[in-house]
């Protein structure tokens, strides 16, 4: 299937990898876990550049937040005590649903983001966590907010660039709750709808702020900003949950495919968002009135 590949590069440093990326240009393709590269079977690359030997597999935490090497596998994320203890462990939970163990042992978080599947489970969580990507080419290194990274299904702003690191800013202090929700045919199947939600309680048990990210319901994962605004500053009630669900439904633009209809996905977006909000509220100690 890949008999047209002329060279498989295994650079040992980031500088070397970026030089190869520049040299091979459009004919070079980045390989990390390979799970997407093989299944996509794009015949245009002539060169593969393996980025799994650049010391980009790490998870670190400091006062400014969390940084994750782009070549960290889904399995390493799900096992990382830092990730399990950060924001209710929602990134670990999402990583644990990204396919079978065999695939999670290979698939990397950078690859999951760069592949730009609208259903990517790590992307929806990182969007809710306001993550930035550190992206490099041979000339410069810069930061891109994940919210500005996608331009369409399987399309990103990357141009012969490599995702080096994912940066999650420190969470605001105070009592917060986080939830990852996924609707799939099985636990490890591709998501029909996924959601990552966080919220924080103020001193009066009202919602200080909320973040609601929805995936698999549009060309790219989206934040339901109108729903977030609706919740901010208010006490949570069944009525407000229903309104937030409506706002989430208005924020998504799902398609119908072999897995589910657009109507079903839209309806389930509200269900998952409400389910997530309830879980977050319980964690944050926010009561739900009538």
């Amino acid at each position: 299937m890949f008999d047209h590949i002329e060279c498989f590069y295994r650079p040992g440093t980031l500088r070397e990898a970026l030089a190869l990326l520049q040299k091979t240009g459009r004919r070079g393709a980045i390989v990390a876990g390979a799970t997407d590269v093989v299944t996509r079977a794009d015949r245009s690359p002539r060169y593969f550049i393996d980025v799994t030997h650049l010391d980009l597999d790490y998870v670190r935490k400091n006062g400014r937040g969390c940084t994750i090497g782009a070549a960290t596998t889904m399995m390493a994320l799900e096992k990382s005590s830092i990730i399990r203890g950060f924001a209710g462990g929602i990134l670990a939970k999402a990583a644990a649903t990204c396919g079978s163990i065999q695939n999670r042992n290979m698939a990397t978080v950078g690859g999951n983001l760069a592949n730009a599947s609208p259903a990517a489970d790590s992307a929806v969580v990182l969007l809710a966590l306001d993550a930035h990507l550190v992206v490099a080419n041979s000339r410069r290194k810069h930061r891109i907010p994940l919210a500005e990274f996608y331009v369409g299904p399987h399309k990103t702003v990357l141009k012969s660039e490599l995702i080096v690191e994912i940066v999650i800013p420190a969470l605001p202090g105070g009592r917060s709750g986080w939830s990852f929700q996924k609707l799939g045919r099985t636990e490890t199947d591709i998501s029909l709808v996924n959601a990552a939600v966080g919220l924080q309680a103020d001193a009066h048990g009202r919602i200080k702020w909320s973040r609601i990210a929805m995936g698999a319901v549009g060309p790219m994962p989206v934040r339901a900003r109108a729903a977030e605004k609706l919740l901010a500053g208010n006490a949570l009630s069944e009525d407000l949950l229903a309104q937030a669900g409506e706002a989430v439904m208005n924020a998504v633009s799902p398609i119908s495919d072999g897995r589910a209809s657009a109507e079903y996905r839209r309806e389930m977006s509200a269900v998952l968002a409400r389910r997530a909000l309830r879980e977050c509220a319980a964690q944050a100690g926010i009561p739900i009135g009538n």
């Binding site: 399995m75 163990i101 065999q102 695939n103 290979m106």
Partner: peptide, 23 residues
Amino acid sequence: GECGACTVLVNGKPVNSCLMFAA
């Protein structure tokens, strides 16, 4: 990478050998 019939252990970890380059 769906069915797992090609599973091998690479450094002790199960991997689908159909989704891994020999290199």
